[in-house]
Design a protein around this nucleic acid. Structure first.
Length: 478
RNA sequence: UCCAGCGUAGCUCAGUGGUAGAGCGGUCGGCUGUUAACCGAUUGGUCGUAGGUUCGAAUCCUACCGCUGGAGCCA
């Protein structure tokens, strides 16, 4: 059995012989096609005197295929005239050069099978919906131009993530979703338990988690980093790409309770190598979307952010700014800008400070590195000055932190000391410390929020609009 | 969690103490190789919810709910 290039193994609805052609491919045809079959959803329909124009979209691209439905050739023409936005149809006919302006090809139908109708309660109109409204109909919004485009770009960039790392010899590793480590300092955790909440087993008044499913307390992962380190110290260069969960009651356009994170981890790599990789990675993803999703990017530039393409190209063209935390603090102090929050060594950079650096001063992505050890987690490598750790935050205009990473502390004694300083018991992290006992090496890695990257690439300003079904505090409807 | 703003027709909004409105959409008709079509008619409301002030509340007050923006936290 052979398949045509674009054949589908979907069970055919009625007409078994002809394989369906994606509309994307039909529109790129170089010559007329006598017999072609397409299937999709009606975006809009216009009547002419003796025929009807149907704009058909099948999700394969932003573009619609214009169907010509003629009264004289179609026995079900009366029903076709009742087709409204949202209905699903299978069309068979001839792809011919369009007589009208605006499209190269159109399909003159020999047969239109109405698969599913959509009545006048269908909420999507041809035009003019706000993202806020579409968010309320998350199950239908992929049929809109904007969200169809976002999700096609999301798919493409997910592919590009793997391409980037695989091309560079990284091994894709799967770190656990359910984790027993609760002290990574990366936010609140979702508890995973099969204990009966109405009648939990108790011991000395406390809930007895030794009777829980995993015989201990477990959570959804907030990061695969610690496990990725173990794999990096065997496979040298690894990356994770999977779901991540944060239970913080955080209500902003940049936070989701469930998101996807990419975490490369590299043995024999210092902070500079880490920063180099992060920059190369971010640029690679931008370039990939520019190259492979031109229609979608054009749509974002037209309807979401007029300056998107200029900004992305600007970012691609020049190196990111790198600045030590201490120097960034000095720069902010001397800026003459009136900030709401104080600036000083040992204080976290606030959003307004990050914005000033990346949007006003440098006007490009900025990598801040070498932070005071007091404001960073236990696993980051203490620098020779004893005051800072080899951490880095990559900030981009409009979004803020998109990458956070560090060189990891590879010295056993220093790491144990860091843990104690963070009120952690090294005994709880025996396996993690083993990595320093046996063949330790300098190593580095970072985490990149996939959705934040998508926001940056598409210009879509709310993280809820780059996830098909977003989970945020108080919201998990779909 | 904190601060601010907003909840009026399916959608986007106007209406700021005195009869509930427009555009778009939908429906019907007309016209037409159209393409965010065009022309005409028509449809459409518990003004977020509950309470209060008032002769009278979409409008003023209180509480709650929801949404949005910002902050904190972070990717």
């Amino acid at each position: 059995m052979s398949f045509r290039a674009h054949s589908s193994q979907f069970p055919s609805v009625n007409m078994a012989q002809l394989s369906p052609t994606p509309i994307k491919d039909a529109l790129q045809s170089t010559e007329p096609i006598d017999a072609i079959r397409v299937q999709g959803w009606v975006r809009t329909r216009r009547d002419s005197k003796d025929f009807s124009f149907i704009e058909l979209n099948d999700g394969s691209s932003l573009r619609n295929l214009q169907i010509i439905a003629k009264k004289e050739t179609l026995p079900n023409y009366a029903d076709i005239q009742k087709l409204s936005t949202g209905a699903s149809v299978v069309v068979q006919g001839a792809l011919v050069a369009s007589q009208g302006k605006g499209q190269k090809w159109e399909l003159v139908a020999d047969n239109i099978e109405i698969v599913g109708t959509a009545d006048d309660s269908y909420p999507l109109q041809k035009k003019g919906h706000t993202p806020e409204f579409l968010r309320e109909i998350a199950h239908l919004r992929p049929r809109s131009n904007l969200f169809g485009s976002v999700f096609r770009v999301r798919s493409r960039l997910a592919f590009a993530v793997h391409e980037f790392f695989q091309q560079r010899g990284f091994i894709y590793v799967h770190t656990p979703i359910i984790t027993g480590s609760d002290c990574e300092g990366a936010g609140e955790l979702f508890r995973v338990s099969t204990i009966d909440l109405t009648n939990p087993p108790r011991k000395n008044g406390e809930i007895d988690y030794t009777q829980d499913f995993f015989a201990r307390q477990t959570y959804l992962t907030v990061s695969g980093q610690l496990e990725a380190e173990a794999l990096a110290l065997a496979l040298a260069k690894v990356y994770t790409f999977g779901p991540t969960f944060r239970a913080e009651n955080s209500n902003t356009s940049r936070h989701a309770s469930e998101f996807w994170m990419i975490e490369p981890e590299m043995a024999f790599c210092d902070l500079n190598g880490n920063m180099d990789l992060a920059e190369e990675f971010v640029k690679y993803l931008i370039a990939d979307a520019r190259k492979h999703c031109p229609d979608e990017m054009e749509l974002f530039a037209t309807f979401v952010d007029k300056e998107l393409l200029a900004r992305l190209d600007f970012v691609l063209e020049r190196p990111f700014q790198r600045i030590a935390y201490t120097d960034a603090v000095d720069l902010l102090k001397k800026s003459g800008e009136r900030f709401e929050f104080p600036i000083g060594y040992g204080l976290n950079l606030q959003s307004e400070h990050e914005r000033w650096l990346t949007e006003k001063h440098f006007k490009r992505p900025v990598t801040v590195f070498n932070f005071p050890k007091e404001i960073k987690p236990f696993y980051m490598r203490v620098s020779d000055d004893g005051r800072t750790v080899a951490a880095m935050d990559l900030l981009v205009p409009g979004i803020g932190e998109i990458v956070g990473g560090s060189q990891r502390e590879e010295r056993l004694d220093v790491l144990e000391e860091n843990m104690r300083r963070h009120n952690m018991d090294p005994a709880d992290y025996k396996w993690y410390l083993d990595l320093r006992r046996y063949g330790t090496v300098p190593h580095s890695g970072f985490g990149l929020g996939f959705e934040r990257m998508l926001m940056f690439v598409t210009g879509v300003p709310n993280i809820r609009d780059v996830i098909p079904f977003a989970r945020t505090p108080g919201s998990a409807e779909f």
